[in-house]
């Protein structure tokens, strides 16, 4: 993966960049919600409101001048700016090259657009954002803290990424990369109060690599949004006749009469997705299934709206 920030002379890449930026903005256009609430009540210089004193409030937060005028205890409140460090983890393994019979593009194109959109959104909110591309047996990280126009940097990196290989065999590789960007981001400025990890993947884990990589995040109580791309042909299985199915990532194949095994495969796929949701859909782990061939923005906006309503 090339270094971020390098200006690419390739016109095709420039066109791809432009298209990706446009797609990313379209995805988040009209989204009234961001990735997280930007302010929370607290004490700061910027006045927000007065609130009546309640037992338990710190006495030092009482506005004594107001007490002198009104002879009642009030607390002076102000909104505190909150910044959430966003880690975008994009599955760039070979399985993301999946493309349904009627699909316009590979799954990775959808993942790229989603990551770009979220990066754009984070940039808008002023949140530090880092990108982690997982593929070819390694995690390649790009921290944008302290950079100008981090969204553009992320766009360029995403535009050049090509899905290949598998998840790293080391289950701690992702955690290490996240910790490193967390450490680098500590010097990026004050106000970063939380971390949000967004994992964009197809969920393909021949040996449980994704489960092993995400488990430490649960232990560390990271807030994780898991955007799982499920193609339409994976839920409808439109294939007919004798077909040789080959996995992009492992080369594993299955020769079968597609019509005869359709029901069995659909049941297995549905059971697998249900098991995934049971395991990864909880208080701090939210799993959202998105159709890469459908309206991505709808799913993305619904997800953001739910988060803001919490």
């Amino acid at each position: 993966m090339a270094d971020a920030g390098v200006i690419e002379p390739d016109p095709r890449l420039r066109a791809a960049l432009h298209g990706l930026a446009l797609t990313a903005r379209q995805l988040v256009a009209g989204a009234v919600a961001g990735l997280h609430p930007s302010r929370r009540p607290g004490s700061a210089r910027e006045f927000s409101q007065y609130r009546a004193y309640q037992p338990g409030d710190e006495p030092r937060r009482i506005d004594w001048k107001l007490f002198a005028r009104s002879d009642r205890y009030f607390l002076r409140e102000s909104d505190v700016d909150t910044r959430v460090a966003v880690d975008l983890v994009v599955d760039a393994t070979a399985s993301m090259r999946h493309r349904g019979p009627a699909a316009a593009a590979e799954k990775f194109a959808a993942a790229r657009a989603l990551a770009a959109a979220l990066g754009f959104l984070a940039e808008t909110q002023g949140d530090p954002v880092s990108l982690h591309l997982v593929g070819d047996g390694a995690v390649r990280s790009l921290a944008t803290a302290g950079r100008r126009a981090p969204g553009d940097v992320i766009l360029r990196t995403l535009a050049r990424a090509v899905p290949a290989g598998r998840w790293p065999a080391d289950p701690a590789a992702l955690t290490t990369a996240l910790r490193k960007t967390e450490h680098d981001g500590a010097s990026a400025g004050p106000g970063t109060t939380a971390r949000l990890t967004v994992v964009i993947t197809d969920g393909h884990q021949p040996d449980g690599e994704i489960r092993a990589a995400l488990r430490p995040l649960r232990v560390r109580r990271h807030e994780v949004i898991l955007l799982r791309l499920v193609a339409r042909d994976e839920t409808e299985f439109p294939h007919r006749g004798q077909v040789r199915f080959e996995e992009w990532e492992t080369g594993r194949f299955l020769e079968a009469e597609a019509g005869a095994m359709r029901r069995r495969l659909l049941e297995a796929a549905a059971a697998e997705r249900a098991a995934w949701r049971r395991e990864w859909d909880g208080e701090r782990f939210e799993t959202v299934e998105l159709d890469p061939d459908g309206a991505l923005e709808k799913g993305l906006r619904a997800c953001l709206r739910r988060r803001m309503e919490r």
Partner: peptide, 8 residues
């Protein structure tokens, strides 16, 4: 031949 992300 149909290349897929993964077989269920």
């Amino acid at each position: 031949v149909v290349r897929v992300g993964h077989l269920p």
